[in-house]
Amino acid sequence: MSDEEKCESAPNLSPEPLERRNFLQGFSQQLAEEIGASLGSIPLIACCFATGLTDGTLYNGNTVFVALGTSGQNNKPFGWARSLFSIGCFVIGCLAFSRFHKLIGGGRRRTTLFFSFLLQTVIVVVAATIIQTGIVDGTYPSRRDPADVDFLELAPIGLLSFQAAGQIVNSRGLGVSEVPTVVITTLLCDLISDENILQPLRRNVKRNRRAIAFVLTLLGAICGGWISKATGAVQPSLWFVAAIKAAITISWLFLGVKTTD
């Protein structure tokens, strides 16, 4: 066989498949990396604003409403059941997200955080869609008679409570427990009771995170209330929350890896 024939019969060693394989391997390794608490706390703090937006619409005060309802002091029929259902969905969400994190490699892995927030985003979109399509009354203030019980409201309430559990599980997995993202009273208690609350900014990072998280939660609630009042509906705030969650989901692909924290 001549040299020319050998060259024609040789396989095509194009560098393109090799480059594609190297890219996929590099991307796979990147997804397996662990996110540091210092950088990972930034998206979690942003979640506090999203929580405020949600609470500024219709979904807050569950424990209080359960207590008032069971003692006959809540004037909204079955309001206690609605709140109890919300708490139950939050508990189930904590269980589901914690097991999910353990299954796919731990709470610090980029893959875990990405898919966790992707799921949260999808759930918020579904909840907003249910209200947007009119399946559940989303007018603000509601035009319905307070005595008119609509159990379909449990669908978005349960979904929002379930996804909120993902945030606090993420904060625990990343080791940023000072930013629970969903419990403002605990956050405020830890902030005020901090013995080093007056330390300079660079010497008390946890205090800084708590303070920013509290302000953003409060600001989110105010914005959620004003958005609902201006639009006469609650779903715009939920679409805003979905957009924030989507941005956070994408951010996990680009944040730096774990260092010394």
Score class of each variant (00 low, 15 high):
V149R: 00
G105M: 05
G166K: 00
T231V: 09
A165F: 06
V66W: 02
A221Y: 01
R99G: 08
G93L: 09
G26D: 06
S41K: 04
S14R: 08
R110Y: 07
C48L: 02
F97P: 06
Q120M: 12
I130W: 07
N196F: 13
L159A: 00
L68M: 12
I92G: 04
I222D: 08
L255V: 10
A233T: 10
P77F: 02
L119K: 06
S228A: 15
A50L: 07
A230V: 14
A50S: 10
N204L: 09
G220H: 00
W252I: 04
D145S: 04
A233H: 14
N62Q: 13
L191V: 10
Q120E: 11
A32L: 11
A50W: 02
T186H: 11
D137V: 11
L201G: 06
W80Y: 08
L113P: 04
R207L: 06
F117L: 06
L39V: 15
L39S: 12
N170D: 15
C89R: 00
A81G: 09
C47D: 02
T217F: 15
A81H: 06
D137N: 12
L160Y: 01
G166A: 03
D137E: 11
N60K: 11
E4P: 10
V169N: 01
P11T: 05
F100K: 01
V122H: 00
G107S: 05
V169W: 01
W239S: 09
N208Y: 09
P236L: 00
S2L: 07
T249C: 00
K76E: 13
L159S: 00
T139N: 12
L39N: 15
L198A: 14
Q120R: 07
G225W: 04
D145T: 02
W226L: 14
L188K: 03
G225L: 03
L103K: 15
